[in-house]
């Protein structure tokens, strides 16, 4: 029965988390070092930072940057990906550009953006977008190349408008690729965003982590990290999973 399987999986997940915490606790007690605080100390730090409003503020700032740069990268990336996937000449022309941009280290783009545009918000966002964009383009391009010609012909013979063709014939086929780009994108962007903040902003998670590093404040460092991981998990559970279920319900 599925309910028993579900129950068993939840139990397993709880057990594995407990085991991880137990190992951490054991190690911390054994080492007795300020560089590895116990889970209880980290939890207390988390609580304090939340109550003082410091953690929510920096987390909020970073999330805002994440949403803006993610949306820009997805929007521009989808548009370019669809165009390249459908146009062999443009694709052949820009393929080298893509390979170059895919292989520029994130740190280089970040430094270049700050050098060229100054230590400003738009430079930070631009650095993240430029880092993420090639990945989105490559993923969506694959999807656009794999579009079902039969269905496009059907749409053409029944005189579908361009809008209707895009919404009901093309977009549902691209959806799995968009979701893949979204998932890998979120994971990539939040890592890059911390470096961007560390190097050139005076707020956000990256900036805070930088300060904790200078103060050797490992408890705060861990507390902030867990808060961030929790938020990303929540996005997956509350937004991406339900979206998947809703749009994939036609599959057998």
């Amino acid at each position: 029965m599925p309910s028993i399987g579900l129950y068993r999986n939840k139990l397993l997940a709880a057990l594995s988390i407990t085991l991880l915490l137990a190992i951490w606790q054991g190690l911390a007690l054994f080492l007795r070092s300020p560089t590895l605080p116990t889970p209880a100390i980290v939890a207390a730090t988390f609580w304090q930072a939340t109550m003082s409003g410091e953690l929510p503020y920096h987390l909020g700032v970073t999330l805002l940057r994440l949403i803006i740069s993610f949306s820009l990268a997805m929007l521009i990336g989808c548009a370019i990906g669809i165009i390249l996937g459908n146009n062999k000449t443009l694709d052949a022309f820009f393929d080298n550009w893509l390979v170059i941009f895919l292989n520029i280290p994130a740190l280089v783009t970040i430094i270049l953006c700050y050098v060229w545009f100054g230590l400003v918000e738009s430079a930070a966002i631009l650095a993240v977008v430029v880092n993420k964009l090639p990945n989105v383009i490559v993923t969506i391009r694959e999807g656009a190349r794999a579009l079902d010609k039969d269905l496009l012909e059907m749409a053409q013979s029944y005189r579908f408008s361009k809008r209707k063709t895009f919404l009901h014939v093309i977009w549902p086929q691209l959806h799995p690729f968009v979701m893949a780009a979204t998932r890998s994108g979120l994971a990539l962007i939040w890592k890059i965003i911390l470096v961007v903040e560390l190097l050139g902003r005076s707020n956000g998670m990256g900036y805070q982590l930088h300060i904790f590093f200078q103060l050797f404040d490992v408890a705060s460092l861990l507390a902030y990290s867990f808060a961030f991981i929790a938020v990303i998990q929540l996005i997956e559970i509350l937004v991406l999973k339900p979206l998947d279920r809703k749009t994939q319900r036609w599959r057998r």
Partner: peptide
């Protein structure tokens, strides 16, 4: 003229129900 085309394979949009597949034209 309006043309109805019944292809060799049905070419239905798999993400739409039977009724929606007819309504969409």
């Amino acid at each position: 003229p309006t043309i109805g085309y019944v292809f060799q394979n049905p070419r239905l949009l798999p993400w739409l129900t039977v009724r929606q597949n007819i309504e969409i034209v």
